[in-house]
Simulated assay, not measured.
Amino acid sequence: MMAQAQQKIAGAPAPAAFPGAIAENSRCDLSVDGLCKSFGKDKKVLRGVSFSVRSQEAVALIGSNGAGKSTALRCALRLIEPDEGSMQLFGDDVTSLRLSRLRKLRAEVGFVFQKHNLVPRVSALTNVIHGSLGRSGGISGWSQLFAPAELREKAMDCLERVGLADKALQRADQLSGGQSQRVAIARALMQEPKMVVADEPVASLDPVAGHEVMELFHQLMREQGITLLFTSHNVEQALSYSSRLLAIRRGEIVLDAASSTLSPTDLGRHYG
């Protein structure tokens, strides 16, 4: 898998955007309406943000530093509480859900962040097994030492999918940045998510590792029919690996269009 990604980087063009428009009557996995969020009196970050993500779409959210990308993602899933607005996830109104029910619903979402948030002193395999905690809980999800054979096999399968089965017993703090992000993706896959939300997933990686990770997202999301919502600073990557693109500027959505209809030049006035 890594060799294939390196071949693409070496000279082949970036992958075609996710094919075809998503049917208008397809299920809406995430819908947000009128999100507003301020941090302190004079720091209004979101100003009535509204958007939706349909099942099996790959949606990129772009914008400059401070535009509100990460805050919009976190408010949409109530990782932080918005000041105003409403949110629906997989058809459930999450705006006022109790925390216990919200946690169960969010267990169907795999999160991948710029900081990989791996436990450094345990193995890659144990980190992937941690992905089961949201669904099952209990001591079996703490470590490969306590996990039943079925759970370990499932975690190994997830590592195999991201090309790191040979690193299963290596400590997370001995992995490269690209390998760490692959383990984070495997951990998200361990949840059997309906949707993956990735916030700047390759921002901390070098260009080669960044392309490899985005190639991996591209392959896994299409093969398994998982919805993808990700933020990016890289306009070319955002266009190549999404079916739809949103641009946010100064806390407002200023563009919502099919990626196939856009070019990097088109995005210039929206980015900054």
Score class of each variant (00 low, 15 high):
H211Y: 03
V59A: 06
S70Q: 05
P201A: 07
T261F: 05
D199V: 08
H218V: 03
L245I: 07
K43C: 15
E192N: 12
E24H: 02
S140Y: 04
A72I: 02
D256N: 13
G131F: 04
E192M: 01
Q237T: 06
I139C: 05
V45S: 09
Q224E: 14
Y271E: 01
G177Y: 14
S259A: 12
Q114T: 11
D206N: 02
I253Y: 12
L228Y: 03
V235P: 02
V45A: 14
N127S: 07
L97F: 13
R152Q: 11
R182Y: 08
V162T: 13
A149T: 03
A17T: 14
L246M: 11
S204E: 02
S263A: 02
L89V: 05
N127T: 08
S100W: 09
A257I: 02
D33S: 08
D92A: 14
A257C: 05
N25M: 00
R135E: 10
A14S: 06
R152V: 08
R244N: 01
A14V: 01
S232W: 01
S136R: 14
G68L: 11
V213P: 15
Q191C: 10
K104H: 12
L35I: 01
L205Y: 02
M87C: 12
V59G: 04
L175S: 14
G225P: 07
T261M: 07
V128N: 08
A258M: 08
K194D: 10
A67R: 12
G91I: 11
F39C: 11
Q191L: 09
T265F: 09
G134D: 10
V32L: 07
R187F: 06
G268M: 12
L105T: 10
S180P: 00
M214Y: 14
Q7D: 15
L255Q: 09
H270L: 03
I80P: 03
G91D: 07
K37T: 01
L133G: 07
G210E: 01
S242V: 06
A16Q: 15
S240I: 07
A76D: 07
A60Y: 04
V45P: 09
R161M: 13
A247F: 13
C36W: 04
V94A: 08
L77M: 10
H211C: 02
K194S: 10
T95L: 04
I62M: 14
I62G: 05
Q88M: 09
S240N: 10
R171H: 12
G11W: 00
E150K: 12
S204I: 00
A72C: 12
P264H: 06
P15M: 04
E212D: 11
Q144N: 08
